[in-house]
Design a protein around this nucleic acid. Sequence first.
DNA 1: CGGCAGTAGTTCGTACTAAGAACTATGTAT
DNA 2: ATACATAGTTCTTAGTACGAACTACTGCCG
Lengths: 152, 152
Amino acid sequence: MGKSGEDLGVVAGLVRASFLVNAVYAESAREYGLTVQQGQLLCVLMGRPYGMSDLGGTLGLEKSSLTGLVDRAVRRGLVRREPDPDDRRAVQVLLTAEGHELAEDFYAATCRRVDDLAAGLDSQDRDRLAALLGAIVRDNEAPTVFLDARQP
Amino acid sequence: MGKSGEDLGVVAGLVRASFLVNAVYAESAREYGLTVQQGQLLCVLMGRPYGMSDLGGTLGLEKSSLTGLVDRAVRRGLVRREPDPDDRRAVQVLLTAEGHELAEDFYAATCRRVDDLAAGLDSQDRDRLAALLGAIVRDNEAPTVFLDARQP
DNA sequence: CGGCAGTAGTTCGTACTAAGAACTATGTAT
DNA sequence: ATACATAGTTCTTAGTACGAACTACTGCCG
């Protein structure tokens, strides 16, 4: 198996599929007037509020990078900072009403588009793929940068 | 199946797995003193030279974005522009010797890291995953942003 | 042949991303 | 009380990405 010159190994498959997902994500963000990073920020905050450090850990950014990202999101009215009651150094970042609404819309649109990428697979293959990717996500402790639509 | 609250749907699986792949790609790039975009540029050019327009199509960038990316790669001695013999408007972008060497190293390191992401899967699951991702890549005509290591 | 629409690339201005180093303020342990 | 660690911000530097306006060449149509 695998000699036809038209099938990929796992590595190339993962990288190229990621490229597709990124492209779709970017397109979706653009449609809603967001950058990819802003879209990611909103999607993370859909789950719960985060402190800046947590947020940096989740998004894989240095704190110095995050300040600006959050600043710009605040300027756009998508997000706000609240003092952490238990630690006066710390801050909680959370969605505003407007941010929440935009996040939901962006999230739904992105789900639709990503789902379309897998439109060629039948439902059994989709399940198989979901299980395999789920294993990778779990094995590597991927942060919750995107919620599961099928909220359990 | 799928009620435990710990398994993902295809969409969340794809998005989170992509996040992992991006992180690994970025880490790899950083190790070689590259940005992600520069790494991507090198990987694309490993396959063959490209004109600026082709390159933009493949990387999903506007031509105005590409000029700078290529400029910086030229400044670092990784890439050069050659006049297209058949069209005096056009340009071929190709790897220099140094760029080729760096591309090979970066590519190999990235393959290793991405492969590690799937280290938890047995060989049958890896084949299955490769086949499913391959189908998505093909269905969506993902550009050749990353070669297959197992060159057929 | 001559003009002219389209294509290939670049330039310029604007906004955003990302990192590290230096800094402030608060918390924690001793 | 001192001393060290943690949470965030500021500043600087480099790179990314886009659209609009521009130059130069190609190809076509009459």
